Simulated scan of single mutants.
Amino acid sequence: MSADMAEDTRAPRLMTLPGVYAPQHDTRLLMDALNREDIGPGTEVLDVGTGSGALALHAAQLGARVTAVDIARRALVTARLNALLHRRRITVQRSDLLSALPGRSYDLVICNPPYVPSPMGGLPVRGAARAWEAGRDGRAVLDRICETAPSALRPGGRLLLVHSGLCDSDVTLRRLSDAGLRARVTDRALVPLGPVLRSRLRWLRERGLVHEGEMAEELVVIRAEQA
């Protein structure tokens, strides 16, 4: 998840407690990809890092049976409240990615993980930054998703994953392919750099992640399917 994009007003109106990631352009991009999937009654969906619950609620609206997980307790409270407000039934559970769901499998796994490269290196253990800070290369959580998500997919199951082009989508494709999935980029969008990326722009340019004069970030949606 990136903190840098303005809230997307096209997303359903949701409440967010302080420190919980609000729906933004990456949420909407993943939601559009979700609309193209064959989802209906009986489809089991897992939303990893649910935040406000926006994607989980959208999947439930499409008819899926949805489990939503997050490590942040405020996110869990927010997702439950939004499910009540929108009269959608979703199962909300605390989990560090898929760690609390051993042996469970799903038809579709969706994930908008933290993916912002950070000069600080490590991952924060609390606070709002937990939703976007992702280590020096932005892949601290992405690599774990690539490693663990395939085991949660049923035969023919699909993974939908959104992240910044700053994190190198080719690495994600390669890791998912190495895990036995057929993976490709299905969506791309350019969005303006927001306050977090602008605050570390010099560092990003020194690392060659953002070129001089460049003030936009590319988002990608990756779709991977279990053989």
Rank of each mutant, 00 (worst) to 15 (best):
M120L: 14
L161Y: 14
I110Y: 02
T9F: 05
A11M: 11
V196S: 09
A79E: 12
T50C: 15
T78H: 07
E44N: 05
L81I: 12
D26T: 07
V69L: 01
T9N: 05
H58T: 03
R202C: 03
L181F: 12
E133G: 02
L30E: 07
R139Y: 13
D170R: 15
R207S: 09
G156K: 03
Q226K: 15
P119N: 08
L14E: 12
D47K: 02
V116P: 03
R73A: 08
L97G: 03
P124N: 08
V69C: 01
L181N: 12
L166K: 04
R74I: 01
R202M: 04
L161F: 13
I71K: 11
A140S: 15
H25R: 14
L34M: 14
S169Y: 14
S2V: 01
Q61T: 11
D96Q: 03
W132D: 00
R73C: 04
V162D: 08
C111L: 02
D47N: 02
Q93N: 00
V220E: 07
S99F: 01
D70N: 02
G122K: 03
L98K: 00
D143G: 12
V221I: 12
T148M: 08
G156P: 03
V210M: 05
A129H: 10
Q61D: 15
I222Y: 09
E133Y: 06
R174D: 03
L190K: 14
G103H: 06
V92N: 09
